[in-house]
Design a protein around this nucleic acid. Structure first.
Lengths: 208, 208
DNA sequence: AGATATTTCCATCAAATGATGGAAATAATT
DNA sequence: AATTATTTCCATCATTTGATGGAAATATCT
C-alpha cells in the first residue's frame, strides 16, 4: 500500500503531485509562515478546499514537502557516491562540487528549504525534520574520512558541514549575489563552481 | 535632529530601544512572517498599541531593525579592518575569522536576519535592504584584493562572498549542527573557528 | 498645583488565514 | 444506464493578525 507521497511521485501529472510541486516551490520561496494555503491553491489553479482534501492541513503538506526533498537528497547523494567511488580525493571533491552545484541550482527551492529549516523557527512545531545528520555522516564516509558512522571525528564532521553548507548560500543567495557580480545565470554557476574548488581543494588535498 | 533609530540607540534602556531589541531577536528567530506584532509586544511586556505608537507599522519596525544591524555590521567591519591593517594575509584571515565568529555568535539574530534576507522573499515588499554589496567590496579591499571598489575582479568578489557566508551557516545553524557534534556552545565556537581556518587558510595563503 | 505633553492600555475593526461541511460535478464500477 | 466512489468547488466559520481611536495614566513644564 503506497503512501500518499509515493503515489504523488508515481504520477507526476496528478493533481496531488502538482500541489506538492507548487507547495515546495512556494514554501522554499516564502518560508513556512510566508506561504499561505491560498497562495498554493492559486498557483495550482484549484480551490483551497481541494488542496485540503488532498493533503490535509498546512502542517501536513509542509511535512510531505520535507519528506519529499529528504528522499531526493538521499538519492542524489548516493548517486554522487557512486560516481566518485575509488577516485582520488581531488577528483572526489571536484566531481561532488560539480554535481551538487548542478543539482541545487536546478532546484533552488530545495536549498532554500534546507537553510530555512535550520535557521528559522516555526510557530507551530513540526514533528518531521530533514536527515541532515545522516547526509553528513554518509559524506564523511564517502570522502574516506572514516569507515563507519560511529567513528567520525568531531573536526571531520565540522569540515563536512562546512563543505555541505558552502554550496547553499550561493544557490539560495543567487538573487542577491548575482547582481553584485553582474553576470548571467550560467556564468554565475560556473563562477560558483570555480570559487568552491579554489577554496575547498587546497584544504583537503594538502593537509589530509 | 536625531532619527528615531539614533534616539533608540542613544538610550538603550528606553522602551523604544527595548522594542527594537526584542523585535530584532524575534524577527531573527522566526523570520518576518513568522513574527507577529503581538509576539514582540508580549516579549517587551507592553500592549500592542504601545508598540505601534513607537515604531509605526510592522514593516517600518522591520526596516528599522535592518537599518540598525546594517550600521552595526559596518562598524564591526571597520573595526576588523583596523585590527588587520598591515598584517600578512594569513594573520588577516585568522584575525578576521576569530573576530567575526565571536561577534556573530554573540548576536546570532544578526546572522539569521542576513541569511533570511537573501533567501526568503517577503509577501509585502520592503524598500530597505542590507548593504551586503558594500561589505563585500570593503572586505575585498581590506584583504588587499583590489585598490578601489571599481576594480574588483568577479572571481575575487565571489571568493569574498564565500568567506563572508561561511561563518553564517555555522552561527545560524548551531541548534542544528551542535547536537550532531555533541559538544558545548563554547567548544562549538572553537571547532567552527578551527574548521574555517582549516578550509580558508590554505586557499588564500597558497594560490594568491 | 495646575496645565500641557507624552505615553500606555483597553476595546475594537477589518482583512487575512487556516480549516470544514455539504452540494455539485466528474469519474469509475456494476 | 444506474449506482457508487471520487473529486471539485462554493459558502462559511473561527482565529489570528495588523492596525487604530480614544480614554486613562503618567510624566513634563510653567
Amino acid at each position: 500500500m503506497p503512501t500518499p507521497l509515493e503515489k504523488a511521485r508515481q504520477y507526476p501529472d496528478s493533481i496531488k503531485a502538482t500541489i506538492l510541486t507548487e507547495a515546495r516551490r512556494l514554501f522554499g520561496e516564502y518560508g513556512y509562515h510566508g506561504t499561505t494555503t491560498r497562495m498554493i491553491a492559486k498557483a495550482v489553479g484549484i480551490d483551497i478546499s481541494t488542496l485540503y482534501y488532498h493533503w490535509g492541513e498546512k502542517k501536513d503538506l509542509f511535512e510531505a514537502v520535507l519528506t519529499d526533498i529528504d528522499q531526493e537528497i538521499e538519492d542524489k547523494l548516493k548517486e554522487i557516491e557512486k560516481q566518485v567511488r575509488g577516485k582520488s580525493i581531488k577528483v572526489r571533491l571536484e566531481v561532488a562540487i560539480d554535481v551538487m552545484c548542478d543539482y541545487w541550482f536546478s532546484k533552488p527551492e530545495v536549498s532554500n528549504l534546507i537553510i530555512n529549516r535550520y535557521i528559522s523557527k516555526t510557530r507551530h512545531d513540526l514533528s518531521f525534520d530533514l536527515k541532515v545528520p545522516e547526509y553528513i555522516s554518509n559524506i564523511a564516509i564517502a570522502m574516506k574520512m572514516a569507515f563507519d558512522k560511529q567513528s567520525i571525528a568531531i573536526a571531520d564532521k565540522a569540515k563536512i558541514i562546512a563543505v555541505w553548507n558552502s554550496v547553499f548560500n550561493f544557490v539560495s543567495g543567487e538573487n542577491y549575489f548575482r547582481p553584485l557580480l553582474n553576470i548571467s545565470h550560467d556564468d554565475y554557476i560556473q563562477v560558483v563552481k570555480d570559487t568552491l574548488k579554489f577554496i575547498l581543494l587546497p584544504a583537503f588535498t594538502k593537509n589530509m
